[in-house]
Amino acid sequence: MPDLDTVRQEIERMRIQIGRQRKEILQLQRAGIGTASAEALLSRMEAKVEGLCVERDALKVAQPRQSRGRVLGGRTW
């Protein structure tokens, strides 16, 4: 089972790819080219990201809690 950081990196990478895919679909639509297969790929990519987010949330719950009440580089209240 992958660790939390690996899942987060994969989500970030996939979101970047989704953004590129959306831009490409817009370019194809402006050119009058059919985009059905590209849109199907986009929906599969979005479903994959949703699955990774569920996995990330499960890993976050399973991870032990770190000390609360501290702000990164801040004071302890």
Rank of each mutant, 00 (worst) to 15 (best):
D5T: 09
T6C: 10
T6H: 13
V7D: 03
V7K: 02
R8Q: 15
Q9E: 12
Q9G: 15
E10D: 15
E10Y: 04
E10C: 06
E12G: 10
R13A: 12
M14H: 09
R15W: 01
R15D: 11
I16D: 13
I18D: 06
R20A: 12
Q21N: 03
R22N: 01
K23M: 08
I25T: 04
L26C: 04
Q27L: 14
Q29K: 14
R30L: 14
A31H: 03
A31M: 14
A31P: 05
G32D: 15
T35G: 13
T35P: 08
A36I: 11
S37C: 06
S37A: 15
S37G: 02
E39Q: 14
L42D: 03
L42N: 06
R44W: 00
M45K: 06
M45T: 01
E46K: 07
E46Y: 01
A47T: 03
A47S: 12
V49R: 11
V49E: 04
L52V: 02
C53Y: 06
C53P: 03
C53F: 07
E55D: 07
D57F: 06
D57W: 05
A58V: 04
L59E: 04
K60A: 11
A62I: 01
Q63W: 13
P64I: 08
R65Q: 07
Q66N: 03
Q66H: 07
S67F: 10
R68G: 04
R70T: 07
R70E: 03
R70A: 06
R75Y: 15
T76K: 10
W77Y: 11
